[in-house]
């Protein structure tokens, strides 16, 4: 903003850039932009469906964010040995993970809200906790738990405290291993903390349990 150039500002020459290129470019960018904003998830889903679904075996990583699971779809096979790493990547929110089917609901002014899954996937499953860092609490319900780390004070054993679910503090992670039980079909996983809002805001996923290979 130092000097004054106005004495040099005459519209002198018309040197033309291509109108067609400009319109095509702007139109193309507009289409891409609108697509990115409004059709992000259909496009992402289409790409995902192109990829063949593989069965998760061995070490499975599951990340938690605000408010999503990454990945939000898994596929396990009955009888496989799975080691699940669950990590809470959120900088400031706790997250948990339930697996189940059907919903328990509570009535509110805005209609019924899902408070959790009705059937617990982990009923009677043997699990072995290998790692636990910044765990707020871990409800075991009817799962049968052995632990390689000190389970105190966060492990809440025994039924009556809700479904099986580890609740992680921000930055926390847990690892546990188990054999996929013989409960084939489609199951759901989700997080219900903070007045059940996390599930409502999209923090959910699906697991397909395939029958054992013969």
């Amino acid at each position: 903003m130092s000097d004054d150039l106005e004495k040099n500002q005459q519209p002198l020459v018309e040197r033309e850039w291509s109108r067609r290129e400009f319109l095509l470019g702007a139109g193309g960018l507009a289409v891409v932009g609108v697509g990115a904003l409004f059709a992000k998830s259909p496009i992402a889903n289409a790409f995902q469906s192109l990829r063949p679904q593989t069965t998760d075996q061995g070490h499975v990583r599951l990340y938690q964010g605000d408010f999503y699971f990454d990945p939000n779809h898994m596929q396990w096979r009955v009888g496989d040995q799975v080691t699940l790493h669950l990590m809470n990547q959120s900088p400031n929110r706790p997250h948990e993970m339930w697996i189940g089917r059907g919903f328990d609901t509570t009535p509110t002014e805005f209609g019924p809200i899902a408070t959790g899954f009705h059937t617990d996937f982990w009923d009677g499953v043997h699990i072995n906790i290998l790692e636990a860092y910044h765990v707020s609490n871990w409800v075991t319900n009817n799962a049968i738990v052995t632990s390689q780390v000190s389970p105190h004070p966060w492990l809440v054993t025994g039924p009556g405290n809700g479904n099986f679910s580890p609740t992680l503090e921000p930055g926390g992670y847990v690892t546990w291993s188990f054999t996929v039980p013989n409960k084939p079909g489609r199951w759901m996983y989700g997080c219900f903390v903070q007045s059940y809002i996390h599930y409502d805001e999209g923090m959910r996923g699906t697991i397909d349990i395939l029958p054992a290979k013969v």
Partner: peptide, 13 residues
């Protein structure tokens, strides 16, 4: 403004 061909820069006026 001058109609000459000189193109002027900052500090040149």
């Amino acid at each position: 403004s001058n109609q000459s061909n000189d193109v002027l820069y900052p500090m040149q006026t």
